[in-house]
């Protein structure tokens, strides 16, 4: 999913760091948002809704819709789309998935 080479924007040369999502380790690039890092690792589900326990992911991408709320290092309801990844960050999805 990563655009390593772009005809106009050139090569992607950011430094690789590590994050975990629901306990599993993934590679991320310095400076990108949590949402982008997870999507690059094919993770689309960031939370489950309260009423219908439906999966939700990135929707607005700029912090307006609050659909991408995740728990980051214990802090709840952090917006994945406008929060930058940091090395060693522990990220967890929110809400309960249907059994």
């Amino acid at each position: 999913m990563r655009i390593k080479k772009h005809p106009i924007l050139g090569k992607l040369e950011e430094k690789e760091i590590n994050i975990t999502f629901n306990g599993r380790e993934f590679a991320a690039l310095e400076g990108e948002s949590i949402a982008a890092a997870l999507l690059a690792n094919h993770i689309r589900i960031l939370s489950y809704t309260e009423k219908r326990q439906e999966p939700r992911g990135i929707y607005c991408g700029i912090g307006h819709c609050y659909e991408c709320r995740v728990t980051v290092d214990g802090e709840r309801s952090v917006r994945a789309c406008i929060t930058t990844v940091k090395d060693g960050m522990r990220i967890e999805s929110q809400g309960e998935s249907p059994k």
Binding site: Y59, C60, H64, C65, Y66, E67, R69, S77
Partner: peptide, 8 residues
């Protein structure tokens, strides 16, 4: 009335 306060 939800968390996005109607923004969407």
């Amino acid at each position: 009335m939800g968390i996005c306060q109607g923004r969407t």
